[in-house]
Computed example of a mutant assay.
Amino acid sequence: MKRSGPLLTLLAGLLVGLFMLSLNATTGEKPTSAAVQPSPSTKASPGTKASPSAAPTNTTPPPRATPSATAVPEGVYTGRTDDDSSAVAITVRDDKAIAYVCDGHNIESWLQGDVKADGSLRLTGKGGASLEAEAKGTRQLRGTATVGSGSHPFTIDRSKKSSGLYRANSTVAGAKIEGGWIVLPDGEQVGILKRDGKPSPAPRIDPETGAVTVDGQQLTARPVTP
C-alpha cells in the first residue's frame, strides 16, 4: 500500500495538468476585428442653408455717347481742290445743296442733293459724278469730288460777299449758251461757257451785278441757290 501512494500522486498531477490544458483550449480569446465607426455625416444640418451665389457683376462699361457732327450753316462755300486742278463751289439752303466743280477748261459738273442733320452731304450729277462732304466747324466743308475719272479732295471756306457761284442760260446768235462761274475769295474766276454743248473757258463776270458779255451780247449770270 505504501508503494501506490507516489503513483497516485503522479497520476493525480497528470490529471490536473490535462484538465488545465483542456480548460485553456476551450476558454482562449480570439482576436476581434476593429469596430468600424461610421464617418461623420457630410450633409448640412437641417438648420443650415446654403448661401446663394453672388449675382454676376456686369463689367461692360456703358456705351459712350457719340458727339453729334456740326450742322452745315446756310451759305456759299468756295475754294480749290487739294491738287489745285479745279475749283469747287457749294451752295447750302433749306437742307438742300447745289455744287459746281470746274477746271476752267473742259471739265465741269453740276451736282445736287440733301444736307443731312449730322452735317454731311452727298450730291450726285450726270455721268456718275458725285460729291461727299461734311462740316468742319461753322465755316468749312471738307470732302471729295469725283468727276470723270478723277477724285479730288478739297477743303473750302464759307465765301465772303465778293465770292460765290453763278450761272447763266440764254441764246446768243442762235446758239444755246450755258455758263457756270466760281468766284473765289481772292477774286479769281473759274468757269466754263458752253455753246451748243461745246465747252470753252468762260469770260469774266462782274460779281456785283453778274453782267457778262458773250459774243457781243450782254447777259446776266445769277447767283445759284438750291
Rank of each mutant, 00 (worst) to 15 (best):
A44L: 14
T81R: 00
V147S: 01
L10I: 14
G104D: 03
A87I: 09
S53W: 03
I205H: 03
L14I: 11
V190K: 07
T60Q: 11
S163P: 01
T213Q: 06
S68D: 08
G125C: 12
G216P: 03
D186H: 05
P56M: 07
P63Q: 08
D215C: 04
P207V: 12
A65E: 13
K116D: 11
L15C: 11
R3C: 04
Q217K: 15
T42N: 09
K176L: 08
P6I: 15
N24I: 03
G174S: 11
S41H: 00
Q189M: 15
A12M: 15
K116C: 01
R122F: 10
Q218E: 15
H152P: 00
E178T: 12
G79C: 08
P40F: 09
L15T: 12
L184E: 02
A44G: 06
A117M: 10
T9H: 06
L18R: 06
D157V: 04
S86Q: 09
G128F: 11
R158A: 05
G216K: 05
V88W: 00
S68C: 02
V190T: 15
G127A: 11
K2A: 14
P31D: 09
T48Q: 05
Y100G: 06
A54T: 14
P52I: 05
A25Y: 03
E178G: 03
S53N: 12
D215K: 09
T48C: 04
L193F: 02
A69N: 07
G197F: 07
V88G: 00
A87Y: 01
R195Y: 06
L121D: 04
S33V: 12
A35T: 11
D83S: 09
K30T: 14
S162C: 01
S162T: 14
A97N: 08
L165I: 08
G28Q: 13
A25W: 02
T27C: 01
T48P: 02
P6C: 11
L18F: 12
L7Y: 13
P207I: 10
G150L: 13
Y166R: 09
T171K: 14
K198E: 07
K30E: 14
I205N: 03
R80Q: 13
G179L: 00
E74M: 06
R93K: 14
R3P: 05
A50H: 03
W110K: 11
V224W: 00
I182D: 01
T70H: 06
D103V: 03
T27H: 10
N169F: 10
P62F: 10
G5A: 13
D196G: 07
G197P: 07
S33A: 15
G47I: 09
T26P: 00
P201W: 12
K160G: 15
S85Y: 06
S120K: 13
G187C: 07
K43G: 07
V183E: 00
Y100M: 09
G216D: 05
G150E: 10
V172P: 04
C102T: 15
H105P: 00
G143A: 09
T59F: 09
L141E: 04
P67I: 05
A35I: 12
A221Q: 00
G179T: 02
S149L: 14
P31G: 12
S86V: 02
S120A: 14
S162M: 08
A168Q: 04
T78H: 04
K116T: 08
E134C: 06
T9S: 08
G47F: 07
K176W: 02
T209K: 10
S200T: 13
D114G: 05
A129Q: 05
